[in-house]
Amino acid sequence: MPTLEIDSLAKSYGTVRALDGVSFDVNSGELFGFVGSNGAGKTTTMRIILGVLRGDFGEVRWDGAPVDLDVRKRIGYMPEERGLYPRMKVGEQLVYLARLHGLDAGAAHAAMEHWTEVLGVAERRGDEVEKLSLGNQQRVQLASALVHQPDILVLDEPFSGLDPVAVAVMSDVLRTQADRGVPVIFSSHQLELVERLCDRVGIVKAGRLVASGTIDELRATDQLQWHLTGTMPETWTPDAPGATLTPQGPGVWRVEAESTDAAQAVVASALHHGVVSEFTQVRPTLTDLFQGVVSEEEVAA
């Protein structure tokens, strides 16, 4: 199974260091979510993968070999700044783009019909793109990334500006493509969606990849947390080394502990001082992880 390898990419715009050694891999059939604050370097990374931007350093490889124009023709790309010929008809435009990617006329036409059907813009084939609503233009944009049956998908913020129905359609398409064996990279600020959809996530900050892995792997690196509710007095402080207690309100605490044993000691002490009504482990969401990573970096800096 071929892998898309992004290896030590670096890129500066004058004095701005947009990328500072970004490396990660995306396997075939894997949905990779790329998250990071504005200006973190997501778009720059994707543009370098597509070759529309030249990096200062680093390499992108597919199946072990550097990505060249022939491989790029097999990538489906949705740029952050959407763009199609505004005065060209939807159908003609998709056929043209498919042919630029190397499909013959018949295959290009069939693919155009298929994707306009799947994405719900079939009846707009004869209309000029600029006459479509923004949402429908977005669907055509996705169709343009898919119309040549790509081997790799790179989508920059594909969910931005979509209504819930379109979000569902888009998620579905991405999942289907991954199941077909295509490595899919997409960036997004909708972290719940990324958490739900992706096999693996990379968090990029100030041009560096600060965390990457499955959601569970990312969680494993974080401190364990519990949620504790009970009738213990406000003055209660348990004698439990390796655990810290933060009051969250009357009768509610957050427990952070290095180990499960330390947490159990807290519970034992709590049972002495009152009635415990709830003690549950809190699984941090991607949002929590993201915030943790970002603030951690800020402290370090």
Binding site: R47, L50, G51, V52, L69, R72, K73, I75, Y77, P79, E81, R82, G83, L84, Y85, P86, L97, L100, H101, S144, A145
Partner: peptide, 10 residues
């Protein structure tokens, strides 16, 4: 119209 970005990708 920014279409140039998808063109230059291929």
């Amino acid at each position: 119209s920014r279409v140039v970005e998808i063109l230059l990708a291929t």
